[in-house]
Simulated scan of single mutants.
Amino acid sequence: MTPATLPPAPTPIFDRARIARRIEASRFDENFVLRLVLADLEDRLSMVTRAFSRAVIVAPAVTGLPAQLHSAKGPIAFEHIATASGPAPMDGEAFALPGRNYDLIVSLLDLQWVTDVPGYLARTRAHLAPDGLFIAAFPGGDTLSELRQAFLLADSERHGGAFARVAPMIPLKDAAGLLQRAGFALPVADVETHIVRYADPLALFLELRALGASNPLLERPSMPVSRALLGRAAEAYRERAEDQDGRVRATLELVWLSGWSPHESQQKPLKPGSAEVSLSRVLGRPEG
């Protein structure tokens, strides 16, 4: 099985230099989203009945990443690759790992800042050994939906139109199809949704800035975020997402992808509509 022919790479929409500066200034190891993702990754790998001899974690920064996790067959030692910080960060769009024939590649919280997602996935697959596993986690399409709606309303009232102040994110319904398009076998996508609560909208705004996650787009609005605009967005946020105790909700949707580099030993997909393959079954499939 070979990857489908990919169209020319789209024009970049993310300011990766700006992202790198913000990640470098943040405390990525204190990122609560990273902690959630790492705990979930550990659970998922514990179901995999495979041993991995060459594994790598690709993430915006390497601080806080584990040197070792475990599958059902034993410990997995990881190399670490940074895409947005460190002395020699890797360009996430180019995605050229230092070697080939990895039997496990994990991408954590990086895909949301990649313009050419099909190209990224195809290049990832090219670095896997046959029957190698790829796992990715990234914020999904409903993440920060409350914030997006609040700024749309505030911009409409203050400036007479909408501006892109929150980055677009990959919806779950498209995720597995992107893996299949890149030539992965047994593609699976699922989602974990978390509701995070804050004392007020400003606390959310400040945390996003501290995590290096504020507006990453190359073409940022010509209208800056003024005090008046921020105040109206905060009001609109409260109108949509305030609980009875005065705290506000924020949606965090974490999408998980998994796919295997094709190999003749793999189970063959069923006919469309005949069944669904569960994530636990695919990740825990026996060797052979």
Rank of each mutant, 00 (worst) to 15 (best):
V56I: 13
P66K: 11
L65V: 14
P60A: 09
H70K: 14
P75W: 06
L69D: 01
A72Q: 15
V48I: 08
P75Q: 13
K73S: 10
A77W: 11
V62S: 04
F52D: 00
H70R: 15
V58L: 02
T63K: 14
P66M: 13
M47R: 15
R50K: 12
R50V: 07
I81W: 05
R50L: 09
E79L: 09
A67G: 15
A84H: 07
H80I: 01
A51K: 07
S53G: 15
A51M: 04
G86F: 04
E79V: 06
A77L: 09
L65W: 07
Q68F: 03
A61R: 05
F52K: 01
L65S: 11
I81L: 11
P75L: 11
I57V: 11
I81T: 08
Q68M: 14
A59R: 00
A59L: 04
T83N: 11
K73P: 03
A55R: 00
P60E: 04
S85D: 07
T83G: 05
V56M: 13
H70M: 08
P66S: 12
R54K: 15
G86S: 12
A84L: 06
T49V: 13
T83S: 12
V62T: 06
E79S: 13
L65Q: 10
A67P: 10
H80A: 11
S53F: 05
S71Q: 08
L65R: 09
I81S: 02
A77G: 08
L69N: 01
L69S: 05
T63D: 14
A55F: 03
M47F: 08
V56R: 03
V48S: 06
P60V: 03
